[in-house]
Design a binder for these strands. Sequence first.
DNA 1: TCAAAAGTGTTATCCTTACACCCATGT
DNA 2: ACATGGGTGTAAGGATAACACTTTTGA
Lengths: 332, 332
Amino acid sequence: MKTGTAQHRASASVTVDLTAVIVAVTDGQPRVLTVAGGTSGSAEALPSGPLARQHRTLEQGLRAWVEAQTGQSLGYVEQLYTFGDLDRQLAPPSAGGGRVLSIGYLALVREPRDRSGDAATWHDWYRYFPWEDWRRGRPDVLADIEPALSAWVRAPATAGERESRRERLGVAFGTGGGGWSEDRVLERYELAYEVGLVQEADREGAAGTAGPGVGVAMGGDHRRILATAIARLRGKIKYRPVVFELMPPAFTLLQLQQAVEALAGMPLHKPNFRRLVEQQGLVEETGAVTLGTGGRPARLVRFRREALVERPAPGLRVRARSGRRSGSRSSS
Amino acid sequence: MKTGTAQHRASASVTVDLTAVIVAVTDGQPRVLTVAGGTSGSAEALPSGPLARQHRTLEQGLRAWVEAQTGQSLGYVEQLYTFGDLDRQLAPPSAGGGRVLSIGYLALVREPRDRSGDAATWHDWYRYFPWEDWRRGRPDVLADIEPALSAWVRAPATAGERESRRERLGVAFGTGGGGWSEDRVLERYELAYEVGLVQEADREGAAGTAGPGVGVAMGGDHRRILATAIARLRGKIKYRPVVFELMPPAFTLLQLQQAVEALAGMPLHKPNFRRLVEQQGLVEETGAVTLGTGGRPARLVRFRREALVERPAPGLRVRARSGRRSGSRSSS
DNA sequence: TCAAAAGTGTTATCCTTACACCCATGT
DNA sequence: ACATGGGTGTAAGGATAACACTTTTGA
């Protein structure tokens, strides 16, 4: 039962790639910082680079690479996940032959002013995941991909396998009982990949059902890392006050609400959102007011750091507003 | 601003270690599987081994190593975190010189029957974290370490630094406002490490305040990985039905409650717990009853898999029962 | 008969959700 | 005047937490 020594011999030569999902919210839109190409041809990619000896910590290595490639310095940084499966190394490793490990990170920054960084561009993240934006009701893409999803469910020969697929689809896309869960971003992307709905699936032996794919593709497996980041952020927002990492020093409650809506991808009920925020003690008055809001001037508030110490889970346990617009569209 | 090429040269030679925290609940006690020594001398260690070329996926590599070292095959497996800081490599890497990356995993198994595995032992996890067990009230160790914690808060020269430490202690240990949060296991361990309360801190340049340390030490940085696992599990239990991975096919509600209490490290209110579980539709009747429970025979229930599809977050949102026994002790 | 565990009923309280409405500013 | 956003009141409903109490077994 002890095959240990046999395995020990073939220890792999490994390159470690540090990859950053850098998120900001600008004008109520969730944005992510991308660079051109990267190791992976011409597609849009996330900032990333190999771990080097002089990086004392992984996070330090990440910050160095991001600054070098984009000029952006990072505030809040959080490790997401380490990817290393051989059959999902979509991009050929720069140092040929060996295995590539990708450690994904989520970074939150305040909205960028100057774009001094070379080759770095901010993009709305729903560009890559159009089916994730429910702010103005059910997104139209879902109707487009529905046939492919149902076909995938019906495809297997055995009833058991069909049932298992139906269940998986139900959990991920909220068909069947549960309804749409805004986290589960990764489950949905992985399922879309398996079904062959995203372009990345073509690049490698997978399902590969041609067509341009839904949403904009990314280099390597970066879209999967982005999906992981969105999922994590959508989950975390509910029990930790991370949104404030994305807000300017002073902001109005509507701006805060729009930031949360941007991240969560769903509309919120205004009066209740405001009460939730204030009753949780998450913000305090600055005394100032804004004028250019289009309506009545709004109070400017700031994040109240003491909330971190007082509350056990000081997040914004948001749930979608019920009045979702139907999102029906003219079929064509 | 583009130092990229300069960094690229010094790409590190890396060994990747896969490390498993394998959890079971036996007789209402949370247990973790350990092996003797490992790479790290004679201390208790978690099963682990280097990633090899033939491992198609990271998880597969982990499963192979665990089976080889302990004979235990794994069911539910989840990646936790990747550790790679140079100044926390407590154990000298077996392949000299290079950097060691540790990918930690959490695995849940049903209670072990036979111990055919060589050198593998199950231990109560509170052996390593005695301050985490609040099932019978506030644990006594906390009184022992309190002086050291306060001293650490008072130590810095500047008031600002003192305040920052006070705040950090308040969040981690629930002094100040928030109260004890059963997740935050990692924050507490890291703080204890910094204060020099755990033996691991001595092994390297850190605070190192002598003494045997609180709780049993582990090889390498394994106790940190274990802390990460407990924290994750305590958090996850609230919104995903992961406890059931630890239960036998049929069980009583009290057994389930005790499993949750074991993991969360706090007592629960029985009548409310039962209602919560049943109302959530997490279990269904088997029809059978147990007899040897000491009191009235209990219904045996089983996990209801359909709950996964129906509910958005089918967990056990548990909160501590209020009637905590005081946990005072004779000082000595 | 008592201890121990299994269960049920009920109440008070809090939180969430939704609806209705008023306020202040710009065009 | 009215559109736009800011902001308050409140009532219905559900979930929670605590208390009190009955039931069924074994020692």
